[in-house]
Computed example of a mutant assay.
Amino acid sequence: MRLLALTALLVFVADQATKYLVVFGLNLRERLSVDVWPPYLNFRMAWNQGVNFGLLSNSAEIMRWVLVAVALVISGWVIRWAARAALAPVAQIAAGCLVGGALGNVVDRVLYGAVADFLNMSCCGFDNPYSFNIADIAIFAGALGLVLFADAKKTP
């Protein structure tokens, strides 16, 4: 459980720090766009009221709190499940990534009403129209890691 908590903390801090530095430090919220290393890395401001790729996006205030509640319930369930399952370290790290990312996006929803997405990457003729953040990467990697390594148990 210590590894899960440490990973969640690191992901949470990295997510919130990068959002603060880019959205407020570089004033991306007003500039809306900064080309860092086109087309591979650009900052494109997007306030996401939904989940990944804007799914379930809704301007109704109730949806904001529903998504906060869902993220908190899922995070709590993952922590409880991981504590009882005696997961291998790689699965604990995956669970920590998922929880830390989810909590990072929860803080955005509570403070700003939407999740601050700013990373935009394109390559090889593919022009990606979507923005995302460190929390989104961690949630995806954590969920994938749990699918792949949830059966791995701690060795005595």
Rank of each mutant, 00 (worst) to 15 (best):
R109I: 11
N42M: 06
W65C: 07
F43T: 02
L103V: 09
L103A: 04
G54K: 13
V68N: 07
P89T: 06
A83N: 15
M63F: 11
M63H: 12
L87P: 11
A71C: 04
W37D: 03
P89H: 08
W65I: 03
A94N: 10
L55P: 06
M63Y: 09
A102Q: 03
S75H: 03
W77K: 12
S57Q: 14
I93A: 15
V51D: 07
I62W: 12
V66I: 15
G101N: 11
S75K: 04
Q49M: 13
A71T: 02
V106M: 09
V66H: 12
Y40V: 05
V51H: 10
R64Y: 10
F53L: 14
V90C: 06
G100T: 00
A69N: 05
V106E: 09
W37P: 04
V78P: 00
N48V: 03
W47D: 05
V36R: 14
M63R: 07
R84H: 06
V107W: 00
E61H: 07
Q49T: 10
A69E: 08
W65H: 14
L72Y: 05
A46L: 11
Q92M: 15
W77F: 15
P38G: 04
P38C: 02
W37Q: 01
S75C: 13
L55M: 14
G100L: 01
N58G: 04
R109A: 14
C97V: 01
G76H: 11
N58E: 12
A95E: 10
